[in-house]
Computed example of a mutant assay.
Amino acid sequence: MDPQMTEVTQLFGRFKAAFIRNDFVSCNSLLSQLKVLLTKFPSLPPSFQESPNAVQELTIAREIYEHAVVLSVKTEDQDAFERDFFQLKPYYTDTSGILPSSPQEYPILGLNLLRLLVQNRIAEFHTELELLPTSALDNPCLKHAVELEQSFMEGAYNRVLSARQTVPHETYVHFMDLLAKTGHPEWEIKDGFVFFQKAKESAPCKEIPSLQLINQTLSYARELERIV
């Protein structure tokens, strides 16, 4: 095996071990090292140079970025999610003739749709949908996101809440919780229950005592007489 591939494979093994035990500090450190090593692979996007190890390089790089996206969900880092997702996306869109499809593709594409919903980036949500083949929308992960967006736009917040119980993948729970919090400004979710905040009572209007108003008016009138 190529020495660089050996180094990446071994380091990725350490990353996955840390990932399984939820050692996210180690995961982030190892991920940074892996990303540096991946820059030495000539076959990766955007260059896609021909290489004897192209399939191996593309396969392990795709898996690394898939783990990076899921890691960002577990650490609740939406900025990292966006960066890692866009680094991962070319492996889904531009390697169809080189690599077999990844079993994580639709779950991660669905995660990205949920992220766009949470961030209220509805136009981008629909743009991402338009880039997908029609058949992809039958996938449970993507179908879940589409139905959720419809419920959200219709104001059917009860369906938004109930959708949390039927998530197609465990990683969706984080974004579902965020969506529930942002879906209705009067919601508060606590211990699995939805509470509606009591409307704030408006402060009573202060009435100006009529005698005070009369005295002020007379005072102004006297001042005007002096001026004239």
Rank of each mutant, 00 (worst) to 15 (best):
P103I: 00
I122P: 01
P90T: 02
L113H: 12
S102P: 02
E105C: 14
F86Y: 13
E105K: 14
L113M: 08
N112C: 11
E124S: 14
S102G: 07
Q119M: 11
K74F: 13
S102H: 00
R83I: 15
L132M: 12
L111C: 11
P103M: 04
N112L: 09
Q78I: 05
Y106E: 06
E124G: 11
P107I: 00
T75P: 15
H126L: 02
S96Y: 13
Q119P: 02
D77S: 14
A80H: 03
S101Q: 11
L88E: 05
F81M: 13
Y91F: 15
N112Y: 14
Q78P: 10
R115D: 13
Y91K: 06
Q87Y: 14
F86T: 04
E76S: 15
L114M: 15
E82H: 10
F81D: 05
Y92K: 04
L129V: 13
S96V: 14
A80S: 07
T95L: 08
E76L: 10
Y92V: 07
A123S: 14
E105H: 13
L109T: 04
L114V: 15
E128N: 10
D79V: 10
N120R: 08
K74R: 04
N120D: 09
L117Q: 03
P90V: 06
L109D: 00
K89T: 02
L117I: 14
E130R: 06
F85I: 11
Y106A: 06
T93F: 04
I122N: 12
L114Y: 14
E130G: 10
T95Q: 09
R121W: 05
L113W: 09
G110F: 05
F85G: 01
E128H: 10
F125T: 03
